[in-house]
Each structure stands twice: as structure tokens, then as C-alpha cells.
Computed example of a mutant assay.
Amino acid sequence: MRTLPSTILVVGGGITGSTMAVLLRRVGLDVELAEAAPDWNTGAGSGITLHGNALRVLREAGVWDEVRMAGHGFGTIGLTAVDGSLLHEERSLPAGGDDLPATFGIERPRLQSILAAAVRASGVRVRLGVRAQVTAQYGNSVEVAYNDSESRRYALVIAADGLHSTLRAAVGITDTPKTTGMAAWRAIVPRPPGLDRTNLTYGAPVHIAGYCPTGPDTIYAYLVESTKPRSELPPPASHAAHMRALAAPYGGHWPAIRAHLTDSSQVNYSRFSRLLVRNAWHRGRVVLAGDAAHSCPPTLAQGAAMGLEDAWVLSGLLADEPPATWDDALLTRYHDRRSRRAATVVEASVRIGQWLLDSSPHADIPNLMNRTMTMLRQMP
């Protein structure tokens, strides 16, 4: 009799996939991770804001102490006028509990480096520079081909391969991301004296002007404007100049930030998208996690947190059952625990963006943020 496979394959080595792999190993499961990039140790991007519900998962994964030393936590957010004057100070709800920062900033490549090291230290077998394709399912196993050649069977495949997941489409889940009409310019710059939290300016001249401390010496700054056709975007060599021009009307810390926006190679531009797979997140023994199942604009800074929560919930469910019983009912329980919470976050994030696009007189961003964060204090 052929022995059934017991190894889990995680496809995608970003924040969700790496954390998923570590948590699965911490509950004693055998794991491989496949990542298309040839070197995923640092990744790309500028900075990332994480709330307490994300931090508590990183603590479960055993990396919180290292993350804490690399970033910066804070407990309030300021709403400012264009000239930099403070309009309102909002105390952030500690969604991960009172023993974790309510809000935390870190450079995204640094977070990726910490997670990649944790993956390797956990004993996960890592395959880099490969593309995984599901070629068949056999009840208790999934056959996966790498780069159209080598094939292996796994007990379960977790598709954590991002917003444009190829596995999502390959197993017949037809939901696709949609743009929201906004895009952000982001850059890491030196941290000006006295800047110790996020301040946000909503409305004109851009929809959102904000920044977040990412450590003792750095912040990431971001400017959110309406999406333009690609033909109207400045050439890459002019990205820093474009970001400086967008920042020019803003006071407070912005003149000091603007002075360091000189290197276009350090400026990132990305369009905001939304995705919510409302029906089942699995087909057979292939299951979605993170941005492959749900993705939202960063107006609530909850996109990564939702993927981290997926990793915590799914790893816990799998730990409670032997591989032979990882059936439709178990994966449906995962969906049922995650889908409503993820939908609430996606819809709130999109609503904030739409209010800003419409210049809505009825917008109440602080209240919506508080309601959502109060919900997120509850364990997923």
C-alpha cells in the first residue's frame, strides 16, 4: 500500500506564506515552501504599518522580539491640516492586547529578512526560483509540477502566492482583483527629529499624505493620489521629483521629508486593488491564504494582518487533525472563521478610499477605524 504524503506545500514566500510555514512547523508539521523569486531574503517595498492583531501572530511565530527591535511602536495617530498643524489626536486601540503596541512601523525588507531567517531556522525546506503548478488531485494528495518538469505529491497545498495568484485561477476560483482608483508613492527617508508616530492629512491636494516611523532612524512616507493611466505617469527617473512636487504644499515634518526625496530608485509606486473571494477558499486540497483570498487598499493598514491571521487560524486547525482527515469540512471551517472578518476589513478599507475619492461630506474615517479595530481586538 502506498504511504499517503504528509508534507504541506506553501506556495509564496511573502509575509503570509513565510509566517504560515513557520507556524506549521511550530505545531510539528512537515513543510516545504516554494517561491518564484530566486532570492526572497529581503524582498522589495518600502515600509509597512502593522496593528496589534498582526503583532500577536508574529509573536506566536516566535519573531516578535526581533521585529520589535527592528521597528518602532506607538499608541496615537495625529490628524493634521495641510500646514502641519494638529487637528485631532486619536488614541489607537491595541487590537493585539495591551502588552503589544497598538501601531507599529517597520521597513518591509527588514521584516521579510526576519521571516525568511525564521523559515530556514524552523526546518522548512525552501525551493527558490521555481514556479509550482497543480497538475492533479487524488483525494488525499495534490500533485505539483515545478517549472513544468519535476513533480511531487503533497498532503495539502496552501496558495499564498499573492493578489495575482496563479494557483487561484488554476484550481477554478474565478474571482479577480479590481483597482480602486487610488495609487500611492512611497519612500524610506531619514526620520526627522520629533517624529515619533503616524500623522495623516486627508483631502486635497492629494487624498492622503502620511508617514510612519520604521525604526530609530527611518520613516516611510506616502502620498496617495488618484490613479492615472500608465501613459501619464512620470518616467522612472523622475519619480523622486514627482513625489517632491506632491509633497510641496505640506508643512510640519514634510519639508524635512521632502528634502530627502532625491533618489528615484528608492521611490515605489503601486495601485490600490481590492479582492474578496466570497465563496469557498479551497478546491480539494488546495486552499487560499492572504492576498490570494482577500486584499484591500492600505487605508486601514490591515492587509498584511489579515494574511497573518489566516496563517494562525489555518495552522491551528491543521494541527488538530491528522493529514488523512484534512477534508472539505476542515477547510470550510477555516473559511467560515476568516471570511466575515476579512470581508469587514476589505469593505471598510475600500469605503475610506471611496469617501476620499468622492470628497464625501458624510465621511467619518476615525469612527469607522475605531469600529473596525474594536472588532479586531477579538481573536480571529
Rank of each mutant, 00 (worst) to 15 (best):
Arg25Gln: 04
Thr7Tyr: 08
Ala259Ile: 05
Ala159Glu: 05
Asn147Thr: 05
Ser273Thr: 07
Thr166Cys: 02
Ser113Asn: 14
Arg278Thr: 07
Pro5His: 10
Val189Cys: 10
Leu23Cys: 02
Ala237Phe: 06
Ser149Leu: 11
Gly45Lys: 06
Ala319Met: 05
Val130Ala: 13
Leu246Tyr: 08
Arg127Met: 07
Pro297Ile: 00
Pro255Ser: 09
His253Tyr: 11
Val171Thr: 01
Pro234Ser: 11
Met379Ser: 13
His51Ile: 01
Ala209Tyr: 07
Ser18Cys: 14
Trp40Arg: 13
Ala116Leu: 03
Gly181Ala: 09
Leu55Asp: 07
Ala324His: 12
Ile352Thr: 03
Val82Ser: 09
Gly203Gln: 08
Arg127Leu: 14
Ser92Met: 13
Leu261Asp: 05
His362Val: 07
Gly13Arg: 07
Gly97Gln: 02
Arg108Phe: 06
Asn41Pro: 03
Ile219Gly: 01
Gly316Phe: 00
Val157Gly: 09
Leu156Ser: 02
Ala240Thr: 01
Ile208His: 09
Met69Ser: 15
Glu232Gln: 14
Ile106Trp: 03
Thr325Glu: 14
Cys212Ser: 10
Ser46Pro: 04
Ala184Ser: 15
Leu314Trp: 09
Tyr138Met: 10
Asp364Ser: 13
Leu4Asn: 12
Thr332Gln: 14
Thr166Ile: 02
Ser265Lys: 14
Ala241Asn: 04
Arg26Ile: 01
Gly129Glu: 08
Trp254Gln: 02
Tyr211Thr: 04
Val134Phe: 04
Met369Gly: 13
Ile77Thr: 13
Gly105Glu: 00
Leu195Val: 08
Tyr222Cys: 03
Ala348Ser: 15
Asn53Gln: 09
Ser339Thr: 09
Ser46Phe: 07
Pro190Arg: 09
Asp364Met: 03
Gly12Ser: 02
His294Leu: 01
Ala343Pro: 11
Thr227Gln: 15
Ser6Tyr: 01
Met243Gln: 05
His164Ala: 06
Ser339Cys: 10
Gly84Ala: 07
His294Met: 03
Gly194Arg: 05
Gly316Trp: 03
Asn199Ala: 15
Gln378Ala: 15
Val57Phe: 06
Ala245Lys: 14
Leu356Phe: 00
Ala95Ser: 15
Asn147Trp: 02
Pro5Phe: 09
